[in-house]
C-alpha cells in the first residue's frame, strides 16, 4: 500500500473509540452475563401535565455506575392542549431518543468502516391520530401511526456507502428496535 493511500485510510476520525467497542464485543461474547444492563429513570409530577424526570444510575458489566452528572428532563404538553408547555411532549422525547440512537450508530459504523463524517443532521416526524388518546375512536391506536427520519449526511463516501451506514445503524439500534417491536411493560404501584 502506498503511503498516500495509507494516510487517507487512517484519516477517518469521528470521535468514536471503535477499538474499545470491538474489544467490548469480544469480551462480552466470552462473558455474556456481563452484558446484562439495566437502564433507569426516575420521575416526579410537578403540576398539571408537567413532570420532571431524572437519569443518573445504571447497571452494567456486573456493577453499578453513575453518569458523570445527573440529567434532568421536563415533559409537558403544549398550550393548545391547555397545558403550560414547560417541556417537550413525551412522544417528542421518543423522537429525540431515536435520533440520538441512530446518529450514534451512524458515527460508530462510519468509524469502523473508515468513513470520515463531516456533518450528520436528521429531521424526524411522527404521525399521530389523537382520536386514540382522547378515546374518540377505539380503532385508532394511541401511539404513532408511522415515523419518518430524514438524514442529511456529508461524508467522504459514495451514496451507496452512506445508505449502507444508515441501514446498518438501524439494524443495530436499540431505540429503533424498541419502537418497531413489541416490548412487555409492567407498571406497578407502591402505596
Amino acid at each position: 500500500m502506498s503511503k498516500v493511500v495509507a494516510a487517507a485510510n487512517q484519516a477517518a476520525n469521528n470521535g468514536v473509540n471503535v477499538a474499545a467497542l470491538l474489544g467490548a464485543r469480544e469480551a462480552l461474547t466470552a462473558a455474556p452475563e456481563a452484558a446484562q444492563f439495566k437502564w433507569r429513570a426516575t420521575s416526579e409530577w410537578q403540576s398539571g401535565t408537567h413532570t420532571k424526570s431524572n437519569v443518573r444510575s445504571f447497571f452494567g458489566l456486573g456493577e453499578e455506575h453513575n453518569h458523570v452528572e445527573d440529567y434532568a428532563f421536563d415533559t409537558d404538553h403544549p398550550e393548545i392542549f391547555a397545558s403550560e408547555d414547560k417541556g417537550a411532549t413525551p412522544v417528542e422525547l421518543m423522537l429525540v431518543g431515536l435520533a440520538g440512537c441512530l446518529t450514534a450508530g451512524i458515527a460508530a459504523v462510519a468509524q469502523n468502516r473508515n468513513i470520515q463524517l463531516n456533518s450528520v443532521t436528521a429531521t424526524l416526524e411522527a404521525g399521530m391520530d389523537i382520536q386514540g388518546i382522547l378515546g374518540i375512536d377505539s380503532d385508532v391506536r394511541n401511539g404513532f401511526d408511522g415515523v419518518r427520519v430524514n438524514y442529511q449526511i456529508d461524508a467522504v463516501a459514495s451514496a451507496g456507502e452512506i445508505a449502507a451506514l444508515v441501514a446498518q445503524s438501524q439494524k443495530r439500534s436499540a431505540v429503533f428496535d424498541i419502537i418497531t417491536n413489541p416490548t412487555n411493560v409492567t407498571v406497578e404501584v407502591n402505596k
Binding site: 451507496g160 441501514a167 446498518q168 439494524k171 413489541p182
Partner: peptide
C-alpha cells in the same frame, strides 16, 4: 415478533431489512 390477544405482531423494520438486502 409475537402473538398477543389473537393478533400476530410484526416488526416495523421491514423497510430497513429490505434496504439492507438491496444494498
Amino acid at each position: 415478533m409475537g402473538f398477543n390477544n389473537g393478533l400476530a405482531q410484526f416488526s416495523g423494520s421491514l423497510r430497513n431489512v429490505c434496504a439492507l438486502a438491496d444494498l
